[in-house]
Write a protein that binds this DNA or RNA. Structure first.
Lengths: 271, 271
DNA sequence: ACCTGAACACCGTTCAAGT
DNA sequence: ACCTGAACACCGTTCAAGT
């Protein structure tokens, strides 16, 4: 409970010397809203990571009781949902250019990973949440249209969209787990970020060369090459594989149904 | 605390009528070992899913106190690690056949998914655990050798191995989350497993056709096609993409270093 | 050497009661 | 209508004390 000043503050046409101090301890605390809850969740997550967000820490940050949150959100899962939806609004979507559809697909993947990285904890929140918010839908729409522009089957386009979201999410999640493990290492001990790498390298080096000849190669290779190259390889393999997949039939009605051009869209909406 | 019989049981050359009852309430309960802990964890996970396993439930199942477990395992994470290592031993590894390397890679992915499915909860346990146990290493060795047999760059082979593990793990994890959500639905209510599907379909149907023309396609497509086809598409795209990647140079020394044949291996180990 | 009870510092969620 | 205190049923982990 915050301590109250003697002269209570009142809104209205009351002449009050508004000092900075009076501002700080505004007695009428703002009403709880979904908006304020998701804002607090994002702030907490940015400061303390995914595990820093709980119904209780959220209530604390909002200076209320945990039970109060349940008047505005169904449960913990919905908080994650709201956070993910809000972040997904920041996802840039390209104007499809049929000549560059593969490059544009790749760029979307890079943008998605950058978005996860800019919001630490978001990958973990996104895991197990179906992004049905407007941001997610806009991104999915763009990806599918890029695929269709490249002559990809609608079925393949849908699956590819799903598969890419899974990949970027998994990479981002893995990065978060690693980053967290490094930070969790005893503060006074060895906060050395390469400790894990060395441990891994040692393990590979210790393997029997006779039984696992290829593992020596893996060890050497994993020492070189950073996350960026690995990610680029991942999207390269997928986009190449998609491009190699059987293309869809190009019957006119498919054309209209599956990849309407802007004029067709406006015609349809007008009719 | 279990109730004790009057005549206390003693090991040694004491004549005791060993009835089935006496067997049942053996007073000397078996010593705690890592082995017994991982067995109990797997049993609990099979019966109640991943969330059914906790240090406390594990202790309960082993008829001991939570603190006792810490004499044998470092923490909760190590329990997951041990479970994953044990399961990975069941992963079948093929004898590489250079003519069928792509098919063999695909089959390994199918086997891995089948293994996750056979052990519900294992995908979640594997998430955030680097499978350095013998089973994991054996599988990785086999995958890398398949890639090398196909003329793939060592770098690409290593990355591909990683990428595939990520994919199968993510798919299996997603399946677990879905399965769990279905089971969690109020028992008395609608345990209907298609409820989520319908909800999703409704959502897609509700989207503005003008703004998201491609989403209608996605909705139609997602209604058809089961998880198996989707998974097959995923491995098809990846293996095709890998096959399309630049192949490694075939200088003799590379040949020996990177893909030693059995006779070379034994020669090296002897020297 | 191994195990235990009790405690510490947390969770998500519910519900009767307050204003 | 909105918020709260208190409770319920859990977590992982530590540590002094017991045998």
């Amino acid at each position: 409970m915050a301590e109250k000043r003697e002269r209570s503050y009142r809104a209205g046409p009351l002449r009050v010397r508004v000092t900075t101090e009076a501002r700080e301890e505004r007695p009428a605390k703002p009403r709880l809203t979904r908006e304020r809850i998701v804002e607090a969740a994002m702030r907490l997550m940015a400061e303390q990571g995914y595990d820093g967000v709980s119904m209780r820490s959220l209530a604390r940050a909002l200076d209320t009781a945990p039970a109060s949150l349940y008047a505005h959100v169904a449960n913990r899962e919905e908080v994650d949902q709201l956070v993910v939806d809000r972040i997904s609004h920041l996802m840039p979507v390209p104007e499809p250019d049929p000549d560059r559809w593969q490059d544009q697909l790749k760029q979307m993947m890079r943008d998605a990973l950058a978005l996860y990285r800019a919001h630490p904890g978001s990958a973990r929140a996104a895991m197990g949440v179906i992004p049905l918010g407007e941001g997610g839908v806009r991104a999915a729409e763009a990806m599918v249209r890029l695929c269709l522009a490249g002559g990809v089957t609608p079925q393949a386009a849908a699956w590819f969209c799903d598969l890419m979201a899974l990949y970027v999410g998994a990479i981002a999640y893995e990065e978060e787990v690693w980053a967290q493990r490094e930070n969790t290492t005893g503060a006074g001990e060895a906060p050395d970020p390469e400790a894990l790498d060395r441990q891994l390298a040692d393990h590979f080096a210790s393997l029997s060369r006779e039984r696992y000849p290829a593992m020596a190669v893996l060890a050497a290779v994993m020492a070189s090459g950073d996350g960026e190259e690995r990610f680029e390889f991942g999207i390269y393999v997928r986009v190449s594989g998609l491009a190699a997949a059987p293309t869809r039939s190009r019957r006119p009605d498919d054309e209209e149904l599956l990849a309407p051009r802007p004029d067709e869209v406006s015609r349809r909406s007008a009719g």
